[in-house]
């Protein structure tokens, strides 16, 4: 593996794990009582989708969304405390994603909003949704079709930083742009 690309792929994989849960998810139902008739569901996530290509000079041969030199490789929008305003610094990133989505009409993104852990889980879910919705609206203004986007919230349920200080909270007040084919 290319020595320059490797740390970037590691970083991508880690961030993808943080946002999509990464490993296998197994769900079982059971109740007290007779037979255990719960249905098991099983889904798999693969974290970062592995090797994308080799960097050769200025050219990037792989998936443009994974080109570390492109704003498309940036996936997180961070918010101030109690704020739902998408800051100007994210404009190049969101313009790049809007351009990609408009050029690939079969592409689909999930905008995953998050909140810090303080307070009610349900209210935090709504706060995360507000952050996802802010990014969805920004992309819609840039021309992305509603059919290509879904804004959802993880609230405080999937913190990227599991700490309990302001630095951790700031990292968790966030919307991630996740392409459906990258889940």
């Amino acid at each position: 593996m290319n020595k320059i690309l490797w740390p970037i792929l590691v970083a991508l994989t880690l961030s993808a794990c943080g946002t999509t849960g990464g490993t296998q998810a197994t769900v079982e139902d059971r109740t007290g009582g007779t037979a255990s008739t719960g249905q098991g569901t099983e889904t798999t996530g693969v974290g970062g989708s592995g090797v994308a290509g080799n960097a050769m000079g200025d050219q990037y041969a792989g998936d443009p969304r994974k080109n570390p030199a492109s704003p498309l490789s940036k996936r997180s929008v961070f918010f101030d405390y109690d704020s739902f305003v998408v800051k100007d610094e994210y404009r190049p990133m969101l313009e790049a994603h809007a351009g990609y989505l408009m050029s690939k009409r079969d592409a689909h993104v999930i905008l995953q909003g998050n909140a810090d852990e303080r307070g009610s889980r349900e209210y935090n879910l709504a706060l995360g949704q507000k952050r996802a919705e802010a990014v969805r609206k920004a992309l819609a203004v840039l021309g992305v079709s509603d059919a290509q986007m879904e804004a959802i919230s993880f609230g405080e349920e999937k913190p990227r930083n599991e700490g309990h200080d302001e630095a951790a909270y700031a990292e968790n007040r966030r919307t991630d742009v996740v392409y459906s084919d990258e889940k």
């Binding site: 490993t23 998810a25 197994t26 079982e28 059971r30 349920e157």
Partner: peptide, 11 residues
Amino acid sequence: RTVMRSNESVI
């Protein structure tokens, strides 16, 4: 008694 288990959150 456990009635449901998952690797993802339940609220």
